[in-house]
Computed example of a mutant assay.
Amino acid sequence: MSGEASPILTRKDEHLDLALAQQATARRNPFDAFGLPHCALPELDLDDVDLTTSFLGRPLSLPFVVSSMTGGPARGAKINANLAAAAEALQIPFAVGSQRVALEGSRADGLGLELRRVAPTIPIWGNFGAAQLLQGYGIDEARRAVEMIGADALIIHLNPLQEAVQPGGDTRWRGVLEALERLANRLEVPLIVKEVGYGLSSGVARVLADAGVAAVDVAGAGGTAWALIEGDRARSDAAAETAKAFDGWGIPTPRAIRSVRTACADLPLIGSGGIRNGVDAAKAIALGADLVGQAGQVLPAAMVSPEAVVGHFEVMARQLRIACFVTGCPNLSVLRELPLGPA
């Protein structure tokens, strides 16, 4: 399998550049359709708002997670180190990008135990794609992914649309659910399943919960659009035109969060996809998310330093705290019961 590493590395490098470019493009955001109810008399002090929470049995200082980003190019090592150090300082989980290249023996690019040395106390989550479960990956590869970074959980990402529009993408998906169920029942750490930007429906979330998955990340439409990135990478007009038709495709993140929470009342749920700031985070939590994830929005800071990443999330936390304050919510449990209306 290591012979495939060079094309994979090239693709990951292109993904990184195109994801950064997409962040600079203004896109319609689905969170703008929702409004938080303003309270002019909150009867609490701003500094007393409690943003602590827990997820999969681990206490967290903030309801944020550094969502999966790069896992391939050499500059990924710097990004991963910066993210790990920042997540440790913030006491929030860090989900690494795809470990496929590292698992297939080409190079680690920062996806090794050095991450655990940089971040010894926080949850670190491993990651590889669901399509690999039909290409020889199983419990052994899952355990290796966990062991190589000292992970506390493993993410399996679902990206059928991205694979379908990607030249040479992995389009054999029959049997993925059965493979996920086997993995969930045998893996020693929790299994998390996430989409990559097109959303989980309530039906898919229910099937995953029944299969034994410990948590889901809806990763809805509104953030990085991977089909468009694959269209930008396309080497032919036909491939680019094919991808272009899927601009706007997917389940918007707010709708995905609400529907999954309704269908799976007790399933630990991460809301990601288009979270721009702490106000969006407050809306996601009010809709039913336990944690809020960011990837593309934090990538520019991740390329600079751990301090830049910390600064990014400190602003997010300040915005979330103020949103709780001016809606009269002393903590996240109260925020989760807050009714949202139209903007």
Rank of each mutant, 00 (worst) to 15 (best):
A87V: 02
G76N: 01
A130T: 02
A87G: 03
R117G: 00
G138D: 05
P73C: 10
P123F: 01
L111P: 04
R116D: 15
A89Y: 04
R144E: 11
A84W: 05
A77W: 13
G112R: 13
R107G: 04
I124R: 06
G72E: 05
A81D: 11
A77T: 08
V101D: 09
S106I: 10
G105H: 12
G138S: 00
S106G: 13
D140I: 00
N127R: 12
N80L: 08
A85C: 10
I92Y: 04
F128I: 07
A142V: 00
L113V: 08
S98D: 10
N80D: 08
A89T: 03
S98T: 00
I92P: 02
A102D: 01
I92V: 09
P120H: 06
A131S: 15
G138R: 04
I92G: 06
Q132D: 07
Q132I: 06
S98G: 10
L83M: 07
L115W: 06
P93D: 02
R100P: 00
F128L: 07
Q91N: 13
G136H: 03
W125R: 09
A95P: 12
L83E: 03
A95W: 09
A86D: 06
L133E: 12
R143H: 14
A145P: 02
I79W: 11
V101E: 07
